[in-house]
Design a protein around this nucleic acid. Structure first.
Lengths: 180, 180
DNA sequence: CGGTTTGTTTTGTCAAGACTGAACACGATG
DNA sequence: CATCGTGTTCAGTCTTGACAAAACAAACCG
């Protein structure tokens, strides 16, 4: 899970212009928005903020830098980076001769596959129900129709999601086998 | 929010065959699956079960019947039906001369619009960030590209979701203005 | 007017889990 | 070896939210 990569030290010459400031504010907003968004997906808010911050960071970011920037404990950084790393959303980056850990977002959209799975699961349980209902087409009239819509909807949804993923992976030079 | 509709009294002649039983089991599983699925969407589990049960009910179901069937308190039914009703997922059905409330699922996929909104929101916050980043195209190189992918993905996703919704509404005889 | 049925609101309890500080592990370094 | 730097794990706190029981409200009925 560990990526090996040369790190270019972030430029410490901090000239702060007016534009710089507005960018900083926008970053704050974006990071917070990502926190909220991921919370909706049942992920810790900190994990979301982490993702937001890493999206905005051209270079891998140091572990303790993350803690300082987001103003949370190192423990939280440790927990949430591990979580995101396992999910394939971010990558841990190390450099020989440097004991510290850096993190970068994974350019491959790992998170989205999870969404597809969720939709597929719903489709599946509707299909199972429909099969169980088959013996009696009588009372199943309205219900069977509903289930059909349900199944159709989630199936189309998952399919189109997959095709978007495939398209982006293709345009990006990355291939994701087994999901087309 | 209240629908006005004649109610056909559910047939109390309960002849239970073997097939009937397996259907009952399948229903249980389906309802439970819907409970879990909705929990993932940050809705109370009971709300999800409610939806599951109502999907499987050809006729509107009585308030206290819901409590009995799902074995939860009337308080929970009250809270969760109100929640789902406000979200447009289910409809309260009343009948003149009958003080009791019945519920049915809304055949229009109200819940899904919420998903679209979520995706649009993410797209929007990425767009905002990108705009704020514009003044400095320098450091924005990698980041701007990421944001672009981000925006593109969620935009396509929301669009395709919308078109699925539109298609289903069309094939279903229902029109949803303002979402094409 | 009581009393009954039906649904709502309030209040309290309980569990889940996010987050932290502190202890810990472990390698590097003087 | 003592110490520092770095990340992880553990134990505890605090918040959130689901759920229920009970009090409540309102419509109906005798």
């Amino acid at each position: 899970m560990t990526v090996f990569e040369p790190i270019s030290v972030p430029d410490p010459s901090a000239e702060s212009s007016a534009a710089d400031f507005s960018v900083r504010v926008a970053e704050e907003r974006f990071i917070e928005a990502m926190g909220l968004a991921h919370e909706e997906d049942r992920l810790p808010r900190i994990a979301g903020r982490l993702v937001g911050l890493l999206i905005l960071s051209p270079e891998p970011v140091r572990f303790d830098h993350l803690a300082a920037r987001l103003r949370v404990s190192r423990a939280s950084i440790s927990t949430n980076t591990r979580l995101l790393e396992n999910m394939g959303v971010i990558q841990r980056v190390t450099r020989p001769g440097d004991r510290r850990d850096y993190f970068k977002i994974n350019e491959e959209p790992g998170l989205l596959l999870r969404i597809v799975d969720r939709y597929r699961a719903r489709q599946a349980s509707a299909e199972e129900m429909k099969r169980a209902l088959l013996p009696e087409p009588d009372a199943g009239g309205v219900v069977a129709e509903r289930l059909d819509r349900f199944i159709r909807f989630y199936s189309i949804l998952a399919d189109s999601l997959n095709s978007v993923l495939a398209a982006m992976a293709g345009g990006d030079g990355n291939s994701r086998p087994g999901t087309a």
